[in-house]
Design a protein around this nucleic acid. Structure first.
Length: 340
DNA sequence: AACTGACTCAACCGCGGCTGG
DNA sequence: CCCAGCCGCGGTTGAGTCAGT
């Protein structure tokens, strides 16, 4: 049931105007940008039409989300962001949009590309160099999520059927700080782990290698990220996991509480100016973003993920409450309860 | 300088989910 | 319940760029 609008390459609904494809011109960017700033987000097909763009709504949406959005952070990923991505991927799998929701100013596409090009490669090389003897098999692969890995990788399955999704089993203990992320392939219908234990260990090593700065307790900041306005003085991305006791990701330290230091600071005025002068050369825009707080709050009292509030930018079209509703976290946690 | 392979990243494609009629 | 329209997501592609020879 393909719909006309989604067939971007096709013809417009009510005209014979051939929809444009391919790279966006600066003029098109201008049109879309000014339209979005003036009118906000509505129906994307209307946006495309009303902005005078010979593009399908989908294309406009993609362009806006991945490139024109004023709160986009440009430039290379910081080590902290990188670590966060690795961890979140271990936790969420290839749910790039959810990962992106926790990285203010980053898009799912950007993260996906970064993962596929950089991190995956690094994990691969690390796993090949470390290769623990007991767990290494000819079929060992990294967190490669490409479609063919299901055919190539046959890891020993866990007993528990996780029902898809990714799971981080925290064996974090007081003092020794063992964190054991175990990746469960989300794309596999068989719910078999796509990351062998060896790769998990590699991942783990990577995480352990980097001591992330830890911020103070008091992370029960549900909804702060979204509801609070942008505060330049605290311009930072922040992921907090509430709960004094055991938490999903470990009690404290590596990813229990991650402080992503201010990557850049920028005033509202500068941001506004940047919005106006949004350049078309991505490589020249290693600039700043309207970063606010992202909070992940996990209620550990009942081992249930309650709510995740993610504020990605301060724009009404982006504010949304994100929940881990897609998997049954309670069940997931029960399954993994021996590890807690 | 020319060639080539690797890499990056913007954009497209196709699918599933949601919603309203 | 069914269907159409739309949105959003993840996977993939391909053009441009870079680095090595």
């Amino acid at each position: 049931m393909r719909k006309p609008d989604q067939l971007c390459g096709g013809r417009n609904n009510n005209s014979n105007i051939k929809l444009r494809k391919g790279l966006w011109s600066p003029e098109e960017d201008d049109k879309l940008m000014s339209y979005m700033l003036n009118n906000g987000q509505g129906c994307w097909s209307d946006v495309a039409r009303n902005a005078g763009l010979q593009r399908c709504g989908k294309s406009c949406r993609l362009r806006w989300i991945n490139y024109l959005r004023p709160d986009l952070k440009r430039g290379a990923f910081s080590p902290q962001e990188e670590e966060l991505i690795i961890h979140l991927h271990a936790l969420l799998g290839n749910r790039w949009s959810q990962i992106a929701a926790r990285l203010p100013g980053r898009t799912d596409n950007e993260i996906k590309n970064f993962w596929n090009s950089t991190i995956k490669k690094r994990l691969k090389s690390l796993s090949s160099s470390s290769s623990p003897p007991s767990t290494t098999s000819p079929n060992t692969c990294t967190s490669d999520s490409s479609s063919d890995h299901h055919h190539r990788c046959h890891q020993p399955k866990l007993e528990a059927n996780m029902g898809g999704g990714a799971l981080v089993m925290s064996m974090h203990e007081r003092g020794n700080g063992i964190v054991m992320p175990m990746y469960m392939d989300t794309s596999s219908s068989s719910a078999s782990p796509s990351m062998p234990f060896s790769a998990s260990m590699v991942l783990n090593h990577m995480m352990m290698d980097v001591q992330l700065p830890v911020i103070e307790h008091g992370m029960n900041k549900l909804d702060e990220g979204y509801h609070h306005g942008y505060d330049p003085s605290t311009c930072m991305a922040q992921v907090g996991i509430s709960g004094g006791g055991d938490c999903l990701l470990g009690e404290q330290g590596y990813f229990g509480e991650i402080y992503v230091p201010p990557l850049e600071s920028i005033s509202k005025e500068e941001s506004a100016k940047r919005t106006e002068n949004n350049t078309y050369d991505r490589r020249n825009t290693n600039n700043n973003s309207l970063v606010n707080n992202t909070n992940i709050v996990i209620n550990n009292n009942n081992n249930k993920v309650e709510n995740v509030s993610a504020g990605v930018g301060n724009f009404p079209w982006q504010g949304e409450e994100i929940k881990f509703g897609e998997w049954d976290f309670e069940e997931l946690m029960n399954v993994s309860s021996p590890f807690f």
